[in-house]
Structure formats: C-alpha cells, structure tokens
C-alpha cells in the first residue's frame, strides 16, 4: 500500500495497553494519540518503562492495544487477525533491532534475501535486489560473509538492508544504535535516513539517545505511557 509524502501512515487514537503481571496490572500506554506522516523520521524518546517499545510493537503489528484504535497505512490493526498482521508485517513493515537478530547460519546476502524468499519472490529477483541493497549499504564485498564474520556496524547495515528488501512503507527501529559505538551508530543512522528519504519511507525509531533524536524530523516524548506535551 504505497503512501504519498505527507499522507498519514500511522494513526493512533487513545491507545491503551495494559499488562497483567501476576496480581499487578501494568499500564504501559495510557491513551496515546499520535499521527505519523509518510516520508518523515520520528524518534520516540523517554525514560525506561515509559512505553516506547510497547508503542513500537503496536505500530509494528507485533502487539495489539487493550483499547483504542491503531490504523497503519489505512488498515485497522486493532481487530485484524494474526494472519492479517503477519501478512501486513511482511508486506508493509521493515524491522531493525538493537541486537541485529540476523540468522547466524545465513550469509549477509541470504539474510537480506530471506523476507523476499519467504514472500515467494523469485530467487533471482530476490538475489538481485539483496545484492543491490547490500551494495547500497556499503557491503558489496561482504555479501557471502556470515554474521559472525561481520563487525557490529556491518551487521546492523545488513539488518537495514533486510528491513528494506521488500520495500516497506514503514521502517521500525528499536534502539538501532544501542549496540554500536557512537561513530558507527552515526554512520548507520545516516544510511537509514538517506535510504528512507530516497524512497520516501516513514521511519519510526525508539531511542534513549538524544543525538539520534536530534537527527530525526520529529521527536515524540513518552512519559508514564502518555505523550508528553
């Protein structure tokens, strides 16, 4: 579902998320209303436990709100089935994790190809696309290397390429530089933003790092499960 620049890609209305932790109820999100537009990079910041990751998971179709409404790229995820959410993630979302989460037995090329192959794209087309993306992230000479043979920055670049391989409309990143040194983190972010702007994609980053937030188009601060005004 392509989105035009400036169009609403993520719309959250009065989203609440409550967890039952034994006898205790934890309110991770308490009525969050937020709109993110296509072609922008938004940083969600806030102290630990403020609900940043929960918000990312809900926007990323990995979790459902207890109350409220989540509409992403025009699809209401609040009531969607598990199968719909899976397909939605595969077709429209790209994930980048703090710990990269690459499959250790696959080469960099295969890791990037994986979502495309799981989506039943042709092997040759997937390989061409993955090779191009890896070249774009500066890993043209590392395509056959396994994750264990790559540095942290290189691994995260592979993860970025994997997130982009199906050309998703939205890229969700959870502390993408949290496991990298400052210089490498800066390079990775620059690359991510360049690719996002180039392709007019929405980038949604959860971070603790004010420097990362500073590089984004917009910063949303969460505090105690609510958007701080």
């Amino acid at each position: 579902m392509p989105s035009e620049t400036g169009a609403t890609s993520i719309a959250l209305t009065e989203v609440r998320r409550v967890y039952d932790a034994g006898a205790r109820r934890v309110e991770a999100l308490r009525g969050v209303t937020l709109t993110l537009r296509a072609g922008t990079a938004t940083a969600i910041v806030g102290p630990s436990g403020s609900g940043k990751s929960t918000l990312l998971h809900i926007c990323g179709a990995l979790d459902r709100p207890t109350a409220g409404e989540v509409v992403v790229l025009g699809t209401n995820l609040t009531t969607a089935s598990d199968a719909t959410l899976t397909r939605f993630r595969r077709d429209h979302l790209g994930f980048i994790f703090q710990f990269f989460h690459l499959l250790p037995t696959l080469s960099a090329l295969e890791n990037v190809m994986l979502p495309a192959r799981l989506a039943r794209r042709g092997a040759r087309a997937a390989e061409t696309l993955a090779t191009t993306l890896l070249a774009r992230v500066g890993l043209a000479d590392r395509v056959q290397h396994r994750p264990a043979q790559l540095s942290g920055g290189e691994r995260q670049r592979v993860a970025i390429a994997r997130a982009l391989v199906l050309d998703p409309a939205i890229i969700l990143a959870d502390e993408p530089t949290g496991n990298l040194d400052r210089a490498t983190g800066g390079q990775v972010l620059s690359l991510l933003f360049a690719l996002a702007h180039e392709r007019q994609r929405t980038v949604f980053i959860v971070t603790h790092d004010p420097e990362v937030a500073r590089l984004c188009d917009r910063t949303v601060t969460l505090r105690d499960g609510q958007v701080a005004l």
Partner: peptide, 11 residues
Amino acid sequence: VMRAVGTTPLQ
C-alpha cells in the same frame, strides 16, 4: 525475528 519479518506460522 522471522515472524516479525513476516514469516507465517505455517512457514
């Protein structure tokens, strides 16, 4: 991770 990037339960 695989499920997050779109792998279905059947897969």
